[in-house]
């Protein structure tokens, strides 16, 4: 029944519109080709990601133990407590600096800045995002570590990280506020609210999921940085001591980067486990981002 109807249709179209039929045939072949290529590319990427994930998990899991979280690294072995706490400290410092700055700047350029000036800031921020992180690390070394006398320290590392992630926070904040329909701001202003009141109450509520997403993504970028920290945070075998300057701190990416080059199994194990922890944290962050985005759809 179905096939008969189908063949009936194609018979008619072949008789009356041969060129159309040719076109659609060619188009079909083309689209199949394009789809296959995309699919192959996707499969390739997925394969690489899966491979990385699997090797990190299979090599990292054996090193997981309570001792890992409870002891500091000593030489090429020991635990990761100092690196975990150091990473945490660096992330907290860089977020405390870049989140308020970036969010305020993003709000300013999306809502209040004159058009031209907003465009200039957006451009500068893009350029900043394009600077290789090692350059920022070197700059941090020359200026903060040496010139300002901070030494290798949590503050120098945290500031370097915040310079790296600032543009991401500005950009996502800017985008989240710009995509809010004008009618919300106008509705609030028409009631006699100041633009500031309207932003703080109505608009911020709408933009919060987007802004938080930006901050979380920025944090996950900061988590993965190594080069700038080597120049600014140094390394320490001891837990961070809440001294902001002149005391180097440990961080997980350092373990991954250096300990893989050591000729010892214990060092390799520590590196893989540090990598596993990083991947796990980034995964959790991205899951949080997903949750936030799902929450934000409800309002729109």
């Amino acid at each position: 029944m179905d096939t008969r109807a189908d063949s009936g249709v194609s018979e008619v179209s072949i008789q009356t519109m041969p060129s159309y039929e040719m076109h659609s045939y060619r188009r079909k072949v083309k689209s199949i080709a394009v789809w296959s290529i995309s699919f192959a590319a996707l499969a390739f990427v997925m394969f690489i990601i899966l491979d990385i994930l699997l090797s990190v998990i299979s090599k990292g899991v054996p090193g997981l133990s309570l001792k890992l979280f409870a002891t500091q690294t000593s030489g090429i072995a020991g635990g990761l407590q100092n690196a975990i706490l150091g990473t945490l400290m660096l992330i907290v410092i860089s977020s405390l600096i870049s989140a308020p700055l970036g969010v305020l700047a993003g709000i300013y350029i999306s809502l209040f800045a004159p058009k031209r000036f907003g465009a200039v800031i957006r451009f500068i921020s893009e350029v900043l995002a394009g600077i290789p992180s090692i350059v920022i690390g070197y700059f941090g070394y020359m200026v903060m570590v040496l010139q300002w006398g901070m030494g290798f320290s949590a503050l120098a590392g945290g500031i370097s990280l915040s310079i790296i992630i600032l543009p991401y926070i500005v950009r996502t904040t800017d985008a989240s506020f710009r995509q809010i329909p004008k009618s919300y701001l106008e509705g609030a202003i028409a009631l006699g609210m100041t633009p500031f009141m309207a932003t703080r109450t109505v608009l911020l509520k709408l933009a919060t999921p987007g802004v938080l997403t930006g901050i979380l993504l920025a944090v996950s970028i900061a988590l993965g940085e190594t080069a700038p920290l080597i120049y600014t945070a140094g390394w320490s075998n001891f837990d961070p001591n809440l001294q902001l300057i002149k005391n180097p701190v440990a961080y997980l990416t350092y373990v991954v980067w250096t300990y893989l080059n050591e000729p010892y199994n214990a060092a390799h194990q520590l590196a893989y486990t540090a990598a596993l922890l990083l991947v796990a944290i980034v995964l959790v962050l991205h899951l949080l981002v997903r949750l936030l985005q799902r929450g934000s759809i409800k309002h729109a």
């Binding site: 009618s183 106008e186 509705g187 109450t201 109505v202 709408l206």
Partner: peptide, 10 residues
């Protein structure tokens, strides 16, 4: 009052 209702997200 505007053309499209614009209640706040609260």
């Amino acid at each position: 009052l505007f053309q499209r209702p614009n209640p706040f997200p609260m």
